[in-house]
């Protein structure tokens, strides 16, 4: 018996070479296939999470942000046209989710304290134990302790490679402010890490 127009559920896996590429997976996911989206998740969630951890400076919060970004990616798959790499598209979407959340948090805080003091959340030097942790871990911890705006500018510029004007645009702050935050972040990191 032959059934000509038989369509089957596409089957995907994350661990072999003859895999569908991200664009195929994205279009299957757009059609409602969560397994394809799971493969995209397996490929890209680590990067999304890393960005969220560094931007948020808090793992619990980072997990929530990564969740929100990935759910939004699923909901907005229709806006991914395939002209850029999927990873790039997802990365930019994640930056937006993180910055939007930071903005609404600032608004909430502004209602409580009229004069927002970005320095308020600067603690002392983070507790580092150079004897048993590597430099990289030290740097991750130190980044987490930076004041929020300085941390976000530093991560976007020095870790993620965004330009000053892009950061100013996305964070809705003046380019001069970006420069000041970046400078402050580096100064604090150098002091804490005793470079």
């Amino acid at each position: 018996m032959t059934v000509p127009a038989l369509t089957l559920h596409p089957r995907v896996t994350a661990s072999t070479q003859d895999l569908p590429d991200d664009r195929d997976l994205a279009s299957r996911a757009l059609a409602g296939d969560t397994r394809s989206f799971e493969v995209l998740f397996e490929r890209h969630a680590g990067r999304v999470y890393a960005l969220c951890v560094r931007m948020a400076g808090d793992r619990q919060r980072a997990q929530e942000l990564a969740h929100d970004a990935l759910v939004r990616a699923w909901e907005r798959l229709g806006s991914y046209k395939g002209e850029a790499a999927f990873g790039t598209w997802l990365h930019r979407l994640t930056v937006n989710v993180v910055l939007e959340s930071a903005r609404s948090q600032r608004r909430r805080e502004a209602r409580v304290a009229l004069a927002e003091d970005d320095d308020a959340d600067v603690g002392g030097a983070p507790e580092l134990a150079p004897s048993d942790v590597g430099d990289r871990i030290d740097l991750e911890r130190a980044i987490a302790k930076l004041p929020r705006n300085a941390r976000q500018v530093f991560v976007l510029h020095d870790v993620e490679g965004f330009r000053h004007d892009e950061i100013a645009d996305r964070m809705a702050i003046a380019p001069g402010t970006v420069r000041a935050h970046l400078h402050r972040a580096r100064k604090l990191l150098i002091a804490w890490l005793d470079r």
Partner: peptide, 13 residues
């Protein structure tokens, strides 16, 4: 119900 697509089939249901 069901069957195979054109042989050699990539999908059978």
């Amino acid at each position: 119900d069901g069957g195979a697509s054109e042989p050699p089939s990539k999908g059978v249901k």
